[in-house]
Amino acid sequence: MRSIVYYVREFLRPEWLKKFFFVKTAPLVTPPYFKGYPTLTGKDCTGCFTCMMICPAPDAIAVLRRKEQWEPEVYPGHCIRCGLCVEACPEGVLASGRVTDLARRDATAFWHSFHLEVDESLCMRCGNCCVSCPINRQIDPQLAGTGTSTSDEVIMRVSSGRVRILHEEKCTGCKTCETQCPSGAIRVARMVEGVQFLDGVES
């Protein structure tokens, strides 16, 4: 009995009641450093696929052909809103929070190169990587149209019984080949360095 009285007295303290019902919390505001899903700025995409290269989340961004124009499409279920694609895009096609402002203020950029490797023991030479590669598709329209490789100018092609890497330097690192390979046989190693320019000179 005594304990019940104790609890009632404890909860009916005016100070406690006032705090419980009338406490004021700060209104919810979006902090300045918040990054939403990348949105389009309206600037023209050149289809360089740098955004796909830098993206750390599988299948989160794809550069698609819309009528006569390239356009990146972000898939919200996959995107982790890291903002790397926004920062890496050389044309400023994407925007998210203050990512581009900071990059401009600090004069930072990404430098990258790629290395392609095919595991011969896993590869079925099905051609998915060669046909799906957006750069191959631009260079060899026959390959894009019918899956028949006709040019040696492409990044890689099925030739002499294996996938031969011919022009690694043309790779933009979009990893389409990697995601479309059913056997996990092709790997794109990307080497990315963050660099800063001071008065027009790389530091």
Partner: peptide, 16 residues
């Protein structure tokens, strides 16, 4: 991929 490897890349999925 095992039995008709080019079915997807040439005839159904990947080609334009």
């Amino acid at each position: 991929i095992d039995a008709h490897p080019r079915h997807l890349s040439r005839y159904t999925c990947y080609a334009e």
